[in-house]
Simulated assay, not measured.
Amino acid sequence: MLLEKEYFDIWMRRIMERLEAIEQRQKPPKAQEYPTLENGEKLFDNYDLCRMLHVSKRTLQRYRSKCGLKYRMLNQKAFYKESDVQEFIRDNFAMFARRREDQRP
């Protein structure tokens, strides 16, 4: 009878370890820490900015090329300073809102 209890305990430990491993994988990741510059300003990559502005990567590329969104290339990846993004939004989205109001009947 003692041997069966030991066998049962071993299997229960294995099951608990597996369940804990599954639980760890299911936990949401911690909030992403954005890279920062020396002055403490945040840097956003394409993925972050697309999610924040609710636009596609192609639209973001269009903002860079035609609307003057400032960016920096680091290791062949585009990064955007937080202040540049705020300036872009302030300058361009106000202009888009005015155009939309002018087009209304």
Rank of each mutant, 00 (worst) to 15 (best):
2 L>T: 09
2 L>D: 13
2 L>I: 07
4 E>Q: 05
4 E>D: 07
5 K>D: 03
6 E>A: 03
7 Y>D: 12
7 Y>F: 13
7 Y>C: 04
8 F>H: 09
9 D>Y: 10
9 D>N: 10
9 D>G: 00
13 R>Y: 15
17 E>A: 05
17 E>W: 10
18 R>N: 08
20 E>T: 05
21 A>T: 07
22 I>L: 15
23 E>F: 07
26 Q>D: 11
26 Q>M: 11
26 Q>V: 03
27 K>W: 14
27 K>F: 11
29 P>W: 08
29 P>F: 08
30 K>D: 12
30 K>C: 02
31 A>M: 09
33 E>M: 06
34 Y>I: 04
35 P>F: 14
36 T>E: 15
37 L>I: 01
38 E>N: 09
39 N>G: 08
39 N>F: 14
41 E>W: 09
42 K>Y: 14
42 K>I: 05
45 D>N: 15
45 D>K: 03
46 N>A: 09
48 D>Q: 08
50 C>A: 07
50 C>W: 08
51 R>A: 01
51 R>F: 03
52 M>Q: 15
54 H>Y: 05
55 V>P: 02
55 V>S: 02
56 S>Y: 03
56 S>W: 03
57 K>I: 03
58 R>E: 12
59 T>K: 15
60 L>T: 03
61 Q>G: 06
61 Q>F: 10
62 R>W: 15
63 Y>W: 12
63 Y>E: 08
65 S>D: 15
66 K>D: 12
66 K>A: 04
68 G>W: 10
69 L>W: 05
70 K>W: 13
70 K>D: 14
71 Y>P: 00
71 Y>Q: 02
71 Y>M: 02
72 R>W: 12
73 M>K: 10
74 L>E: 15
74 L>W: 15
75 N>Q: 08
76 Q>R: 09
78 A>Y: 01
79 F>Q: 00
80 Y>S: 02
80 Y>P: 01
82 E>C: 01
83 S>R: 02
85 V>S: 05
86 Q>M: 04
86 Q>I: 01
87 E>Q: 05
88 F>V: 00
88 F>C: 02
89 I>F: 00
89 I>A: 00
90 R>K: 08
